[in-house]
Computed example of a mutant assay.
Amino acid sequence: MRHIFKLTLATTLACAAMTAGAAERNPLSVHVLDLQSGKPTAGIGVTLEQQAGGQWRELASGVTDAQGRIPALYPEGKAMAAGDYRIVFKTGEHYKRKGQPSFFPRIPVEFTVDAPAQHYHIPLLLSPFGYSTYRGN
């Protein structure tokens, strides 16, 4: 009977930890993939801005990791508000480090948050002379 209790307690604690982690999940993530190589793009500087009173105000910034991701771009401990946001991918710096020409020094992606409780994921498919983006999950 003690073993069953231990297993049940361990399962309950694990489920509680997963539920807490999901509740605390950052509402915004980004991912950059290189269309030429088909690989994630590490080292891309990214800023997050929110529009307020007709002006853009920086909320956060980060750099993509080895998997081309920033899994938590929204400021930690703050609830996302409905409104207009802009993510700026600093792609020119990336291509300059590689010694490769590119056409877009920065790629601004504007989007509207109308359901702040949802998770927003913004992937960027990147090449030196073009890009594509969409709302991911």
Rank of each mutant, 00 (worst) to 15 (best):
N137A: 14
P128H: 08
F103D: 05
T91K: 00
Y131N: 01
Y95I: 01
L35E: 15
N26K: 09
F5H: 08
H3L: 14
E76L: 13
L35G: 08
A23H: 08
E49T: 11
P71V: 10
G53E: 12
A17I: 15
I87P: 00
F129H: 08
I4Q: 10
F129S: 12
V88S: 06
Q118R: 11
H121R: 10
S29R: 13
G77V: 09
P128Y: 06
R97F: 07
E24C: 06
F103N: 08
V30A: 01
G45H: 07
T47Q: 07
G68A: 06
P108N: 02
Y131V: 01
G68C: 10
A72R: 12
H31F: 15
M80N: 03
I4C: 06
A60T: 08
M18A: 11
Q55C: 04
I70D: 00
A20H: 07
A16N: 08
L35R: 12
D114C: 04
S127I: 01
Y131W: 15
Q50S: 09
T8L: 15
A10F: 11
M1S: 13
H94C: 04
L13T: 13
P116W: 00
I44G: 01
L7K: 11
A23W: 08
A60F: 08
I107Q: 02
R69K: 14
L126E: 07
A60R: 09
A14T: 14
G21R: 04
A66T: 13
A81N: 05
R97M: 10
I4T: 14
I107H: 01
S37R: 13
A79I: 03
A117P: 03
A60N: 15
T8F: 14
R2Q: 12
H31A: 11
P108W: 00
F111A: 00
I4K: 13
G62P: 10
Q55H: 12
V88M: 03
M80Y: 03
V113W: 01
K78G: 00
L125C: 08
T12W: 05
D84A: 13
R25A: 15
I107C: 02
I70W: 01
V30H: 03
Y85L: 06
A79S: 12
T19P: 00
F104V: 03
G62F: 04
P75M: 08
S132C: 05
V30F: 04
D114K: 14
E24T: 10
D84S: 10
A17Y: 11
V46Q: 00
P75G: 09
M18L: 12
L125Q: 14
R57E: 07
S127D: 13
T19G: 03
Y120M: 02
A82I: 02
P40I: 05
P123S: 09
F104C: 02
C15H: 02
R69S: 10
S102M: 11
Y74V: 07
R86Q: 10
P71L: 12
A42G: 05
T47H: 01
L28E: 00
F129Q: 10
T8N: 10
I70S: 02
K98N: 06
A60W: 04
A82T: 02
L7R: 14
G45K: 12
D114N: 15
D65H: 07
R86L: 03
R106Y: 05
G54V: 11
G136K: 06
D114E: 15
H119V: 05
S61P: 02
Q50D: 02
T64V: 07
G21A: 01
Q55K: 11
L126A: 04
R25T: 13
Q55W: 03
T11Q: 05
T41C: 06
